[in-house]
């Protein structure tokens, strides 16, 4: 699934078309390796799960009630009669979908705007920066809450959730990328390239972009992280698509039914750990990418 696309650009950076080298590198970079392994495992869990499990069982009244994990229900069932295994499979897929879509949109817009702004400067920079800076201090969650709250309930779907989350998520990456390009512009290698007559595009794609990849990757991971986060918060406030087994929705439902107190510990803990795995793996990958993409660091090891 889309999880993989995040990792796949890496080989092209380290050693184009040499997958063996990449795996050899993974052995040295344990953090990245662990992150990738977790992501692959989650990916396999979701894909195999979608093939094996009946997605209908992720919805209420489809399984036994409040069953602890057993052979029949490996992940147990919840108060509303969802099979939590099916709910986790579908919820994982939906959470990943929201995260990747919203994170992708936010990062893409941010990179394009950040580059344009910082590299060309002048009124473009002024305009982009002013708009970003004016919008940045505004607490995004509240705007999201207000927007989500004024939508018709039938229009709140996984897809609109992603759009609501992405809508105000591009200013952060824009400013970060812009700040980096600004510093980068002052560096010697860019000045040298400029003096030797390399075109704007050439400088952007050949000199600056490769150096910025750690930051773009970090921005993307950050965006996915905050997208999952934001959708979770909306869910907690009862503004998400309530029926869907989004990881956030499951935790919220468990909380509001007093799952811990009633002894149904598996109900909130499973999605909580799934969330931890997703975000933890992303963090590890992000870290690994920093090393992988910065040749000088590798040299020094």
């Amino acid at each position: 699934m889309a999880n993989i696309t995040m990792v796949s650009p890496s080989p092209t950076i380290s050693q184009p078309s040499n997958v063996v080298l990449f795996f050899r590198y993974l052995r040295r970079n344990k953090g990245l390796a662990l992150g990738v392994i977790i992501l692959v495992a989650l990916f396999l869990f979701t894909v195999i799960g979608l093939l094996v499990v009946n997605p209908k069982h992720a919805y209420p009244l489809s399984a036994g009630l409040k069953q602890p994990p057993s052979l029949k229900y490996p992940f147990g069932t919840d108060f509303f009669g969802r099979d939590l295994l099916a709910a986790m499979v579908v919820g994982m897929w939906q959470t990943a979908f929201i995260g990747l879509l919203a994170g992708g949109i936010g990062t893409l817009v941010g990179v394009v705007l950040g580059f344009t702004s910082a590299y060309f400067g002048g009124w473009i920079d002024a305009a982009v920066r002013t708009v970003c800076q004016i919008l940045t201090p505004i607490p995004v969650l509240l705007i999201q809450v207000v927007v989500a709250g004024s939508l018709d309930k039938r229009d709140v779907t996984i897809f609109t959730m992603a759009l609501i989350v992405a809508m105000l998520a591009w200013m952060g990456p824009t400013l970060v990328i812009r700040a980096q390009v600004m510093t980068m512009k002052e560096r010697q290698f860019v000045a040298v390239a400029k003096l030797s007559g390399v075109s704007d595009m050439g400088i952007i794609f050949r000199e600056i972009l490769p150096n910025l990849l750690p930051f773009i990757a970090a921005a993307f991971v950050g965006q996915v992280f905050s997208a999952v986060f934001a959708s979770f918060y909306l869910a907690v406030l009862g503004l998400g698509p309530l029926r869907e087994p989004l990881l956030g929705n499951i935790i919220w439902a468990a909380q509001s039914q007093g799952a811990f107190f009633n002894g149904w510990w598996w109900w909130p803990l499973e999605p909580a750990f799934a969330m931890i795995l997703i975000l933890g793996a992303l963090a590890l990958v992000n870290m690994g990418l920093d090393e992988l993409a910065n040749p000088r660091v590798r040299r020094s090891e």
């Binding site: 209420p60 009244l61 108060f79 309530l242 029926r243 439902a253 509001s256 039914q257």
Partner: peptide
């Protein structure tokens, strides 16, 4: 209605 409404919707 946090408990009953989702059940009714599902029915």
């Amino acid at each position: 209605h946090g408990d009953i409404a989702p059940i009714l919707a599902e029915m």
